[in-house]
Design a protein around this nucleic acid. Structure first.
Lengths: 230, 230
DNA sequence: CCTTTCTTCACCCCAAGGGGTGAAGAACGT
DNA sequence: ACGTTCTTCACCCCTTGGGGTGAAGAAAGG
């Protein structure tokens, strides 16, 4: 019933690429949209690569990555294959949002959106609209999706800070990358270390290396059924 | 001619195991003794494992490992399969040598020994003697052998300190492990960082992870020709 | 409403790390 | 003998990291 409705409304499924350096994040996104394959087809997930085939929308997930104002989004926006570039973040600072638009992004979506609203927003983007940003109060809580360390009990922010530690960034660098105060970064480091049972950075890095916190590399292409080829 | 002489003198080749956590080190040892296969047969190299088959002599290389006074040598000495335990180190501090003997080691050999003298010393050990330690002045320069980072230009000590950094140890811990002053450790860290082009520990750890400085794991058994089975 | 969790931030204080300088001895090569 | 490299150590000074305490707001659940 629902499938039929969407089929009438859309001539063909929108083609989407997801860009983020952590396969867990990419796979989590894929899982979240599993029910929407008739309207939205994730055809590619890029890990440290730019988009390689024509898509309608590229979703750039900022987890442990440069924000919307950085080089990555600029390059995506300049890539004719990438279609509309959407920054997908839980950092909703208006200044950052504006900077992302100035950097070539077509939309900026909160990671707090439930899947249904996310899909609707992506469709609006595809139609050339600029959907609202909601939720707008407080920091969004991720709905669906996945991140490294989730099974070990890390919160999204703890995971992101640990991922950046595992990339070798110092506290001030992480502060700049995430647009958080260095005090906030230290707080996340403290809670993260307690959670994973380490007491210094060296141990944290080694823990991260062994638990999927190193950026992955590669490109995952999906077939029409949303599966990775054998 | 030489082979015949040794064959008359020794009823069969002495069986030797090498214990160290870095495969490069183990392989370097093997290469150094390649010419002495008729008198000395390296039958096993153990990476983070105790000896698994009966050997006459176990050579414990202290590179980035506990010294002769530590738990590893104690366990080897207690292992009936290990035969005579020989500590093979470039740290010739008399107190440490004594402690190694008290810990169950049968001999303590300098890594500065050329291959020929090393083999002769091992034979003496096998016969029940306790060979002299030479060279006795200064720190021995390694003759033959191999260590991680050698191709990148790291000195043996720089490599050892980096290996311990990559294991997550702090400066004071490394100082204790190596029996060096913490000032010496800092000096090696400085020179090492300059050599590999990093400026902080995080980068050093990641460099180490990517360049073979993480302890390896496994056991390599060699056949009579000194080759690893296919 | 209260509790819990997550997020964000400030401030205090101390430990650990890192860059610099200098010194000395041993070994090796010219 | 001199120069170079490796090793070992000391000391100075500053930066970075980490543990603690406290505060506040938002969201979710009972």
């Amino acid at each position: 019933m629902k499938n039929v409705w969407f089929k009438i409304e859309a001539m063909s499924a929108m083609r989407v690429a997801l860009v983020n350096d952590y396969e867990v994040v990419a796979q989590g996104f894929l899982g979240m949209l599993r029910s929407y394959r008739d309207v939205l087809q994730v055809v590619e997930m890029d890990l440290r690569h730019n988009v390689s085939q024509p898509v309608d929308v590229t979703l750039y997930d900022t987890f442990a990555a440069l924000q919307g104002d950085g080089e990555d989004v600029r390059q995506l926006a300049a890539n004719p294959l990438a279609g509309k570039v959407v920054v997908y973040s839980w950092n909703l600072d208006p200044a950052l949002v504006e900077a992302a638009f100035a950097n070539g992004a077509s939309a900026y979506l909160s990671k707090g959106l439930p899947a249904r609203e996310l899909v609707a927003a992506l469709e609006a983007v595809h139609r050339g609209e600029r959907p609202a940003l909601a939720p707008e109060r407080g920091a969004p809580q991720p709905v669906g999706g996945d991140w490294p360390g989730r099974e070990e009990g890390l919160t999204p922010r703890e995971a992101e800070v640990l991922a950046l530690i595992t990339q070798g960034l110092g506290n001030v660098e992480i502060s700049e990358r995430t647009h958080l105060s260095v005090n906030s970064v230290k707080t996340f480091i403290r809670s993260c270390y307690r959670r994973i049972g380490v007491t210094n950075r060296s141990q944290a890095i080694l823990w991260g290396v062994e638990h999927g916190f190193r950026p992955d590399r590669g490109r995952i292409r999906l077939d029409e059924a949303g599966r990775e080829p054998a």
